[in-house]
Amino acid sequence: MKILVCISKAPDTTSKIAFTDGNTKFDETGVQFIVNPYDEWYALVRGIELKEQHGGTVTTITVGTAADDAVIRKALAIGADDAVRVNTDALDAFQVAEEIANYAKDKGFDLILTGKETINYNGSQVGAMIAEHLDLPYISLATKLDVNDGTAKLDKEIVGGSQEVEAQLPIVVSCAKGMAEQRIPNMRGIMAARTKPLQVVESTSSGQLVNFVNYELPPSKAAVKLIDPDNMDELVALLHNEAKVI
């Protein structure tokens, strides 16, 4: 089975969020970048497990600049076979998806896996966009994925519950919690990752369709109002009269 896993980098979950250049750019000063958690914990690990079961290859793809190589090596250390980086600073999800679809279209991948969403832009868009480019079925927010004889069986989240679905490969799947357990790369994996192939290809996209013009931080929150633990009637009264939420 040929599996492609889409890997993006994201600021470490504890990063302080700030902006520069008149609030038009994310301030990367002092920010640690990690593999976007959904891509790593769910998409990549499940891809590797399926390869371990059925044989085949796991290739990662990242649309980004050389600054992303450290994150790509981490994905290789966890167990991907090789990596591709489309060398461009992608500006929106449309462009990312077009780059990935253009790369993937004649390579015969059986499965294209993405994370549920990136934790910086939270768009949850790229997977569905790749699927439309390639005219493939898209299973969003899958929590379980098994493959048997060219048929994929999946569990996916739906509004208010879950659904069991089947589809013929090739398909595009976005991966959510439940799919797999996080794997910590071991020393051998880290050493091997240094020499695994990382192919850099040039951008082919037609450009962006949306533009993040500027950013803003939320107003700082007023100090918490403390309520005596013996006086829950007061809390209820405040929620009713002041906050007006009940």
Partner: peptide, 19 residues
């Protein structure tokens, strides 16, 4: 919601429209 997230991005590609 979960439905919109699966469809709106596909439509964006189909219509070449920004989402």
């Amino acid at each position: 919601d979960l439905v919109g997230k699966a469809i709106a991005p596909r439509l964006a590609v189909r219509l070449k429209a920004g989402l």
